[in-house]
Design a protein around this nucleic acid. Structure first.
Lengths: 241, 241
DNA sequence: ACTTAGAAGATGTCTAGACAAGTAATAGAT
DNA sequence: ATCTATTACTTGTCTAGACATCTTCTAAGT
């Protein structure tokens, strides 16, 4: 079960063992876990190591702890942050749809002041402007404008955009994408959006403005998207402080 | 600086000391923190205690760690999960507005099947149905229906709802509200919503469907809200896995 | 000047306790 | 039967190391 000679950290092996007991129904929602001391004795490991495994599972939402009482399996089925930050393609795939793209525009432009402020660069600094119609199952889902600092993402080409931009950023450039903020509004589709999204007059759209950040907090991109309201709803998960 | 005789845990005191150095500009974004060993020596505490403080700040988004290199101040200014799960009143206050309420309806009804499924109770089980116009600075912001299992929240009265429902749940009933899911859509206001929200024909609205969960994963409430799109945008923060 | 190897310094993982503070169960007294 | 005190058990906090693995710097060799 726990292999002390494995390169996989012991705490991680414990995590996976507990998680699979939960997923396989051996541990039911509301069940008490064995105590930390019991794990310590069973696996002959330090209690702090057990605590690290359990803390990670508490953080992930599988377990909750109550001082003096014990540790219990959460009734809530979703893993916290499972619905995390994804690329458009990842999002569509998660919804069982086939993602696609129609590139409308791709150029380097001087950053207008509002975008520059969000990207924390000087106005007029060169940025990539990427305009796309986002498809799901071959039909328009969203119209999207993406702005990325040119000096941060060197060598970006149309080929990268046709594939997965996030794959290029993460796998080739080794950028660590950490988080994003979203502002979500409702509006009526304008003439342009009606045409791009193929929706009739007086259609409402979901406007999503997103800012993505790297691990060290550097802003990576600003994305402004107009989604068809008949085909898309935004889903998120929030934790109370 | 660090008071070992204080009831406040040492790791928490370290956290607060580092946090205030960041907030006061003593530590700048991108700056390296002193090493764990340096804190250990400076405060004459265990390195594991230092690690706990730093881990909490990493988790909160103030710092990031790189193995072999050190720990650095994040450039990103917002605290992760700062924009966490709030009540309506908390949300409005955070936006600098004065929250208010017009109670439209409050009764116990048998749970319809779709609500029962979300609350994980049997159809027809008694639930509270609370209908409110949500005000901000005395003007309508949202129309909202809330559904709460009656056996989970005993003794709920109109007085509680006129005040802060979350205060009653947390402070009086000691329920630990942990998280929520949101589904956000865009739509056109119907006749009823136009009247409640005082918006003209062909106004778009932001539809937010929320499910709130307690610490142990028990569903607490289902909330369906229609927000004025001219006065409200939804803001959230997501982390990449 | 450039390259390589070793040392120094950083975080990551883990040990084996100890005491603090909360909850639950049990035993004894009324 | 009920109440109170004690004991047992739980998580929370902390200690004082040790070794693993990564990065960076320095010194030596070419």
């Amino acid at each position: 079960m726990i292999d002390k000679n494995s390169p996989v950290p012991i705490y991680y092996q414990i995590e996976e063992a507990i998680k699979s007991q939960i997923i396989n129904g051996v541990l039911q929602p509301g069940d008490a876990l064995p105590s930390e001391r019991e794990y310590t004795e069973q696996y002959n490991i330090s209690r702090m190591t057990v605590r690290q495994a359990i803390s990670n599972l508490v953080h992930a939402g599988y377990l909750y702890r109550q001082k003096g009482r014990g540790t219990f399996v959460s009734k809530q089925k979703i893993e916290k942050n499972l619905q995390g930050l994804t690329s458009f393609s990842e999002d569509m795939r998660a919804r069982g749809m086939k993602p696609g793209n129609r590139l409308v525009g791709f150029e380097i432009i001087p950053a207008p002041s509002s975008i520059a402020a969000k990207l924390k660069i000087e106005e007029h600094t060169p940025i990539y402007e990427i305009k796309r119609i986002r498809l799901a199952d071959e039909k328009p889902m969203a119209y999207e404008r993406t702005y990325i600092p040119a000096n941060l993402v060197k060598g970006l080409t149309e080929e990268h955009i046709k594939g997965s931009l996030y794959d290029y950023l993460e796998d080739t450039l080794h950028l660590v994408i950490e988080s994003a903020t979203h502002e979500i509004e409702s509006a009526l589709a304008n003439e342009f959006e009606m045409k791009m999204l193929e929706v009739p007059e007086n259609s409402s759209i979901l406007l999503i403005k997103r800012q993505t950040f790297l691990q060290d907090g550097t802003p990576l991109e600003v994305v402004e998207s107009s989604y068809r309201s008949d085909r898309y709803k935004f889903m998120t998960h929030m934790i109370r402080n």
